[in-house]
Design a protein around this nucleic acid. Structure first.
Lengths: 136, 136
DNA sequence: GTCTTGGTTTAGACTTATTCTAAATGCAGA
DNA sequence: TCTGCATTTAGAATAAGTCTAAACCAAGAC
């Protein structure tokens, strides 16, 4: 994706495309990994002519989340990861390497708690976020 | 559950039942909430004749997790919650109050992303933990 | 072109959850 | 009773993330 396209993407979501935001967004769109804020800082800092502040990385990531351009992934309790894949999908965490893979929603049916084709599932967790309609 | 039963439970799982562990485990078994380590400390500290150290609460909770007596619940990125309900279930987070409810696995089918009987689901996330068998 | 305004970025201080450390404690077995 | 080893403790250390106040900068007003 070109820089101009990134700028358009940001504008379309109501985010003013500053240099920092463009380069962070570009990185997020271009990676399939699920980086932490610190990963983003490491990867992006050198691409900017000026110093990039940690606070700006956090600001920008939160900004992109609020704009609906990326989403948070909560798999570990001590750090937030981010994912620019906004399609309907879930996550598979390799407990040995910590690697996180995207699992398309339509593939879920094949992933039975016992054994899938490509994955051996030790455990899984479904978390719903929403509102209680009728409280017992 | 009586204190003797808690001790037996701990022994059965290979955990030496010290006074601190018994009282923490008892609290976990007795609550349906999903307390943080700090919640546990607040609730349990007064029940012990001696001071209870924060480190002991963390040690004990990790110990109970490793023993398979309780499990971690990861719904927020900045704190770990614990759950003594070891049955096959998932979680519903009320985004307004932060309240966490247990959803039995067999009830999942009724919880469609659109609307359930009792819950309005805004979003949900499934996270699998396991090993990659065949890596593409 | 300059001035003003409001949003953005910055460095560093701060907060908060969790882990680490080293000393004190206390049970279990000899 | 003595000894050894796991457990507990208080407080220091670590690390993710937020806050703050000052500097910066782009866009519109004049």
């Amino acid at each position: 994706m070109t820089t101009e396209n990134i700028e358009e993407l940001l504008l379309r979501h109501g985010v003013k495309p500053t240099a920092q935001r463009v380069v962070i967004c570009e990185y997020m769109i271009g990676t399939k990994s699920h980086p932490t804020a610190d990963d983003v800082l490491q990867a992006v800092a050198r691409k900017l002519p000026v110093a990039l502040s940690r606070a700006t990385v956090y600001n920008t990531l939160n900004c992109l989340v609020n704009a609906g351009i990326i989403r948070e992934v909560v798999t570990e309790p001590d750090r937030t990861r981010y994912d620019a894949n906004m399609s309907d999908h879930h996550h598979f965490v390799d407990v040995k390497t910590g690697k996180i893979l995207d699992i398309p929603a339509e593939e879920i049916a094949r992933l039975h708690p016992t054994i899938g084709d490509n994955y051996k599932v030790h455990s899984y967790q479904i978390t719903f976020f929403g509102e209680i309609v009728k409280n017992k």
